[in-house]
């Protein structure tokens, strides 16, 4: 609406936007400062001495932070790969077909996005113990599928809902085999969805804490577990450095996909992070 902006309404707008921006970045600032601080005690607003010690520690071969990083990347990458493999066909079924019981199937698949992990992981743990999957990377990857897979299905069903199956029929009638049709026709059409969905499924797995803690039993030490341990043991400088490393993939992924990220379907999975 056009209401001519007055000086008052303009400055109100400006101030509230400035406050919003500040609030959005504020919690990350002390974390970043801590990673370069050496003994930063009350009541100093800024550290008296600066140091790279925390970063040296975090990036050294012996501290185990890098091992954790690679392990976390491995777990999230495998969980993402499996989610794509399993989620794309399911997304196709939900996006392209109408069938009896579809609403129930959707409800079943989407339930994990609402029901918190703690509600299911305790039961899973008691079963995993008896089949030897606790304290293993395999077990952790399996439970990570609970939040990542529904997200992948959600994204892919949106992509397939906009995909016209007649392109495939056209290819078949021009002599392409089912495999060739998938490779040359379907895959190129859904690839952007797979990439964006996959990157965010990766982030969903990347941010899991309680699932990893319980099923991994503390033996599968991913980055968030390490971060939690340092944060609760009062090593603020190292916590800061690990925290910065931990948020990096998300920012990189965001920069890669910024233009695809709008609307509800792409964002839906963030409730899980």
């Amino acid at each position: 609406m056009i209401e001519k902006p007055t000086l008052l309404s303009n400055s109100f707008r400006f101030i509230t936007i400035a406050m919003l921006i500040t609030w959005l970045v504020l919690p990350l600032i002390p974390l970043a400062i801590w990673s370069f601080a050496k003994g930063w005690f009350f009541p100093h607003i800024l550290p008296k001495y600066w140091s790279l010690k925390a970063w040296e520690y975090a990036l050294s071969d012996t501290a185990g932070v890098l091992d954790s990083l690679w392990l976390t990347i491995f777990i999230s990458a495998v969980a993402t790969f499996l989610s794509i493999l399993i989620g794309v066909p399911a997304g196709r079924a939900l996006g392209m077909y109408k069938f009896k019981g579809k609403e129930i199937v959707e409800l079943l698949i989407l339930a994990p996005t609402i029901v918190p992990g703690i509600a299911v992981v305790l039961g899973i743990h008691s079963v995993f113990i008896s089949i030897g999957l606790t304290n293993t990377v395999t077990g952790v990857i399996l439970v990570h599928l609970i939040p990542t897979l529904p997200y992948m299905v959600l994204v892919m069903s949106g992509i397939f809902a906009n995909f016209d199956a007649e392109f495939e029929d056209q290819a078949r009638s021009l002599g392409a085999s089912p495999i060739k049709t998938f490779w040359y026709i379907t895959l190129p059409a859904i690839l952007p969805g797979i990439i964006v969905g996959g990157l965010f499924a990766f982030l969903v797995s990347w941010s899991q804490y309680i699932l990893t803690l319980l099923i991994g039993g503390g033996r599968v030490l991913t980055l968030p577990l390490l971060l939690f341990n340092f944060a609760t043991s009062g090593r603020n400088d190292i916590t800061g450095a690990i925290g910065m490393i931990y948020i990096l993939p998300g920012i990189i992924i965001l920069l890669l996909t910024a233009k695809h990220l709008s609307g509800r379907s792409a964002v839906g999975g963030f409730g899980q992070i």
Binding site: I86, P89, L94, L108, V121, I124, S126, V127, V153
Partner: peptide, 22 residues
């Protein structure tokens, strides 16, 4: 066939976990 893998994973892990907990 398209739904089977996803449904199995969700039913076994998620609902199985809930059921075991119950």
């Amino acid at each position: 066939l398209l739904l089977a893998p996803a449904l199995s994973i969700i039913i076994i892990l998620f609902f199985g976990g809930l059921f075991a907990g119950l």
